[in-house]
Design a protein around this nucleic acid. Structure first.
Lengths: 158, 158
DNA sequence: TCGAGTTAGTTTGATATCAAACTATCTCGA
DNA sequence: TCGAGATAGTTTGATATCAAACTAACTCGA
């Protein structure tokens, strides 16, 4: 991309690869957005519902970690989901700092009806690659995601 | 990731690969953010300055396309850059619908001083992969980014 | 048991983001 | 030349996002 950038060849390769990585993620997400918007959800809200659906009730802090967002942001997103009656919140008794978030019947119904379409859309997007290519992409992405400083290139974490 | 998800094996592979793609992009971007924030910039503003630096003055609509954002958003981001005296805007005379955005001396100085550090940080992040692996990742990402319906898997567009 | 430090969550203020409605300008054909 | 349609940019209203300051609740050691 920076074709006449005076940095070294390796820097140019890294910049190009990085841009392609970000663009790929953004492009696919953008193509999935209409399906999510059709259910009157945003990506964050969909992510929360999906996590609760697949993993069961969770503490707000665990949700934030899973969605890769800040706690302040999580407060807002969950408040909006609660306002629409899709999730419910309850202080934990053991440790009253925690709030347990769980799906309401409406939330459960919504994600149960929405997720299969989403999964099908993801499949459609990823099928431009063969299964083997997808596994290669996944493996490379995992290593990049873990980043420098991750000990032991294999087995570090799923 | 959805380990007990009842969808098919191929759907599970696609979902897993997609998540890894998005996480990799988000993780690396998050690790680059401190460097951008140190220059009192956001990702969008940095992207605009970088584009103007490497490509010269551009129309606002071309910037929006390059940064992958909406025109409405571009208005805001550029207004904020203008407020800080980093870019300047000028109506094009040939076609008065267009606005030509260009760097001021201050903007030029800022990006000239900031970009090398950014490039070095990207290199550090991507160096968890060998050059060959980076090229493989880039190639796969490009195909995913182009998406289904892109004619001719090779040479379609860089 | 008391207090320093930690952790979960909220609030605040600034920016970003989107979709959709809108204005201004241009093009092209009848 | 005039008017319909296209294009560039702005505005609006809602949501999201972040960092940082804050409150409430817990832990652990002296």
């Amino acid at each position: 991309m920076p074709s006449h950038y005076p940095g070294g060849v390796r820097e140019t390769l890294a910049l190009t690869t990085y841009i392609q990585l970000v663009r790929a993620a953004e492009s696919v997400s953008a193509r999935l957005l209409p399906g999510i918007a059709a259910a009157k959800l945003t990506e964050s809200r969909f992510g929360v519902l999906e996590a609760l659906h697949h993993l069961g009730p969770m503490h707000q802090c665990d949700l934030a970690e899973r969605i890769l967002t800040t706690s302040g942001n999580m407060t807002v997103v969950i408040r909006n989901l609660e306002r629409r009656g899709l999730v419910r919140r309850a202080r934990a008794n053991e440790d009253r700092r925690f709030i347990l978030v769980s799906l309401t019947a409406r939330g459960e119904a919504l994600i149960r009806r929405t997720f299969p379409k989403h999964a099908a859309a993801v499949l459609e997007q990823m099928t431009v690659l063969s299964d083997t290519e997808q596994r290669t992409l996944g493996r490379l992405c995992r290593r990049v995601g873990l980043g420098p400083g991750a000990r032991g290139t294999a087995l570090s974490r799923q």
